[in-house]
Design a protein around this nucleic acid. Structure first.
Lengths: 189, 189
DNA sequence: CGCCGAGTTGAACTGAATCAAGAAACGTGG
DNA sequence: CCACGTTTCTTGATTCAGTTCAACTCGGCG
């Protein structure tokens, strides 16, 4: 799907607005393993994932690589805090699979916002989704054990488990890989 | 401060808009320990904290009481996920001190939004703040140890430590109270 | 065939939870 | 203003979940 299709499911958009979005949006393809945005730079783009899978990750003090978040198809994403606060992104964004993205400069998006107030609703909705998922994440980290977190993931986003290596999932859950392997074999029974 | 004052710091608001907000907003006082919103009910209000301190908490499986979040003066708050998804709130909101709030029905706020598009900016800004703080929280829970989380809190919101009992802070940090006590005595040295 | 990355498994270790008991602080009523 | 019970905080002993490190297995692939 194209970004405008998804957006207009949230709220109907005028043809003008959709066209303006299309014009400013650039489609890009990334091969598996490539870095879409490097840490240390302010993230100035919004990404819409047409196909593929992205991973936000982070280099730990010990240079270990820790996954912060995954994003799959039909989602919008960006290192929001980096743009909002105009500080370097902590995260790298990496394509976990060959991925097709639509890229929009944040500044262009803001210009669109003031030109088409109808986009405000869309923006709210996207922010809200981010917020809800962040809250879920907090609850999962604060209240649940390693095993429960794994079970939750299994229930809510089973597709990710098939598409991503164990090590990445482990760090995403805040668990050691060896532990996750044990949990998993226990759960399989 | 009144909500309109704080809002107009974010973006200038018309006199009409401010007046409309004022008219729909009700000031309420809560004494220390009283429940502002009970879990199990959909949260239909936005709260602005003029003075005092609120705590969101949650009854664990074992009926233990776990703090999800604190909110101090001049902040807007609400059990957003409850309203957005129209599901019962997991959280109780409790006044930790005698608190003076301004209360606005969410539905009224939405009506204001469509009447005064200037409010969209404000809304974005509030959502964004929520999001940034949620992301900070995730990072803290995912990447840091008990002691580091305590130190972070000490650095970023030292005032809370003085106003809230150790048990509440411990559960907020996702730490056992006894552990926090030990950490604290270690940090004091 | 032999190497390589990914996953599994074992043994030792460790940070934090739990349980429990005592100390301090706090409030309330006599 | 003291005596009381209540809540909050500290501290110790024990247990446990999860980490670490390392060795081993397995499947793919040049």
């Amino acid at each position: 799907m194209k970004p405008t299709e998804v957006l207009s499911q949230i709220t109907p958009l005028s043809a003008d607005c959709m066209q303006a979005i299309d014009e400013l949006t650039e489609q890009k393809h990334y091969t598996k393993g490539s870095i879409i945005h490097p840490s240390g730079k302010v993230c100035k783009h919004l990404y819409f994932i047409e196909s593929g899978l992205l991973r936000f990750f982070y280099h730990d003090r010990d240079a270990k690589d820790v996954t912060y978040q995954f994003f799959g198809e039909n989602l919008f994403t960006s290192v929001i805090n980096s743009y909002y606060t105009q500080t370097p992104s902590l995260y790298n964004i990496e394509a976990m699979e060959d991925s097709s993205l639509y890229v929009l400069r944040f500044a262009d998006f803001e210009a669109l916002l003031s030109r088409f107030p109808e986009l405000d609703k869309v923006y709210h909705s996207v922010l809200r989704e981010f917020l809800l998922s962040a809250e879920q994440r907090i609850i999962s980290l604060q209240f649940y054990s390693a095993e429960e977190r794994y079970r939750n993931l299994l229930e809510n986003q089973p597709s990710i488990l098939q598409r991503v290596s164990l090590g990445h999932i482990a760090s995403y859950l805040g668990i050691n890989q060896a532990t996750l392997s044990r949990v998993r074999s226990k759960v399989r029974l």
